[in-house]
Nucleic acid binder design. Structure first.
Lengths: 195, 195
DNA sequence: TTTCAACTTGACACCGTGTCAATTGACATG
DNA sequence: CATGTCAATTGACACGGTGTCAAGTTGAAA
């Protein structure tokens, strides 16, 4: 096994991520992660104080190995507000499936664990920045529909692009990634672009 | 106390509902419900086999006392597809805040309890019928935007009106009930009505 | 050869759900 | 009055999952 001399902490994060991905974030216990990392459950606590902390560390690990969060950036280079909106939705639709499993696990703890709640909220707040940037660019171009204030438009885009919505479209309605991306882009144009 | 000779089952349901409403569906335990109903936790199980079953019964109790579900009907009498869409969104925006607390509790069990999962899914499937009726009426009028097939439009409306979205708009974005209703109606027109 | 850190073993606490057996108290019926 | 029934009580326990603790092992570095 190539993974034998990897440092333990990393092996834990890798195991955590693999299990979460395999189960779409549902039903992954500390025991399972420990087993897969080749250590005891108790040893997990030598590296992470709580399950929430481990889950949060797993998101950072994911970002680090996939550079996922960086991929949300390129939309900033787009010229027009419309292009920026499109680019952002495209990037986001690639990104969601990757964080979904770990996001799901974190969301499941929202109600009982303040740390998990905050960690996920922070992520969603960061994603809101991207929505705001797109809407503001649209406004600057004079292309924002007069139906909504910029603030409202941001709320709407942010909600349209929520992970819960992605979950419903893909998992419940059976939409493909392509259909999701294509439809949300068209929806966003229709809702936010004037005329 | 006027509630003393009410039949126990009803007293339990009443307590369950009150506690769920008071806490917005979060952290209500069997013990709490029993205490409020004036019986022991164990006695709860003489009336309901599981927590999920009690929660589900609570939704029926809520429908019964508030006649909430019936209020989703009047949109059927509306003339045009557009009026129907409006009426449905209006009724729904009145309805959501009422079922939200118990819905929240049910949703929290989705991942671990199959019965709760199914019960909530059934509700959402019923609500989808309303969405379908509105979209189909719009299509019959020749007013459905050519951007979407009827099926896609139903998926989209259904997701737009999801409880999770309502939660985000009102709880996270701080929208009032009126703003929610008004904005969703305007959004729906813009997205679904041709021209 | 000692020392230290990482890890193991095994036990235990806490919470919330669900279960069970034995008991109590009220009420109805013969 | 005795008997039975029914709803509820008391007290105990199981289970699953998280988190904790004390004592022991192992391997590598100093």
């Amino acid at each position: 096994m190539s993974s034998e001399n990897i440092d333990t902490r990393t092996r834990i994060l890798k195991s955590s991520l693999e299990l979460l991905e395999a189960s779409q974030g549902r039903g992954v216990r500390m025991t399972d992660i420990a087993k897969r990392a080749g250590i005891t459950r108790q040893a997990l606590y030598l590296h992470f104080a709580t399950r929430a902390e481990l889950l949060i560390a797993t998101t950072h690990y994911l970002d680090q190995i996939k550079g996922s969060d960086a991929r949300l950036e390129p939309s900033r280079t787009a010229q027009s507000g419309i292009a920026r909106l499109d680019a952002y939705i495209e990037a986001w639709s690639e990104y969601i499936p990757e964080i979904y499993p770990i996001g799901k696990a974190l969301m499941a703890m929202k109600d009982t664990d303040a740390a998990a709640d905050k960690a996920w909220d922070d992520r969603m707040q960061a994603m809101r920045e991207g929505c705001a940037a797109a809407i503001l660019a649209l406004e600057r171009d004079g292309n924002l529909s007069p139906d909504h204030s910029a603030e409202d438009a941001i709320d709407i885009l942010w909600t349209m692009l929520s992970v819960r919505n992605w979950e419903q479209f893909t998992l419940e309605c059976g939409w493909s990634r392509e259909k999701y991306g294509k439809t949300l882009k068209s929806l966003a144009r229709r809702v936010f672009v004037a005329g």
